[in-house]
Design a protein around this nucleic acid. Sequence first.
DNA 1: AAATCCACCAACCGCTTATAT
DNA 2: CATATAAGCGGTTGGTGGATT
Length: 285
Amino acid sequence: MGRAPCCDKANVKRGPWSPEEDAKLKSYIEKNGTGGNWITLPHKIGLKRCGKSCRLRWLNYLRPNIKHGGFTEDEDNLICSLYINIGSRWSIIAAQLPGRTDNDIKNYWNTRLKKKLFGRPRRNQYPHPPQPVAPPPDFSNPANPLCDEAAQNSLTNISIDMPPIEEKFPYDAPCFPSTLTNLKNTPLVSDFHAISGVLANDFQGYDEIPEDIMYQMPQKLEVLDSTFSVVDDMVNSSTTTSAVSHESTSWGDMNCPFYPSALSTYEVCQRKMSQEWEVLLGYSE
DNA sequence: AAATCCACCAACCGCTTATAT
DNA sequence: CATATAAGCGGTTGGTGGATT
């Protein structure tokens, strides 16, 4: 046997909450807490609502310190950067924005941010696909909320959770020489891996890449490029101090410690993207 | 002034994971 | 261990109100 039934589906109210219902739920939870059981809560209060509905109402609207609307530029940038890194994992994104709910962020993304970033191109706009707007995450800035330990662990775990790149992507995966293992676990490098992985996965398994993925490509490639530049600087300073002979490490330089793998990923994605844009916009078959 | 369009967002739906029995 | 439900999550819907035609 399992648990008792959740609620009498035929006998619960649905739709918008009245102020009276809100007041009942809010005052009860503030005094007694949820008791760890949402299903019995409405019965205790005398609300003809499903426990699931009560939970949603509390989490998204009634609980203290909830902020609605008025997203700041910083919040916009953080949401965009996180979305590009980890996709639509709204609860994780919401955890980085105090006072914001996953539902609010999801709505905000779907109705405004997505359009702001990836407005659908008109056919005569090619060869200038949507331009990136948000900067990549700046992990060197202490003001960045992602700099706290929990957030960094969160991002690190996210990149670890991703499918192994070599199994999902036919091209070279980013890699790091053993002399640079001290850099391997920094957030920036995790970030670089994560973005590369996202790009690789985006291209995997499609004969034709869906439009929605295509619209995100310029942004993702820009972030990859920017992130690489910072990692590149770190490598330069690291190798300089350890007296390892090391030339310039620009994108086109074969002496870059993780060239050609990283460059390969970038260039293959870039090339593939250009081809797909041409097909998408009717410039080639 | 009326009709239509569009943006917004609260709430619901359905799926996956966790957990009680 | 198997089963059934709770909890949690992301996707989607539908009502509302303002803007535009």
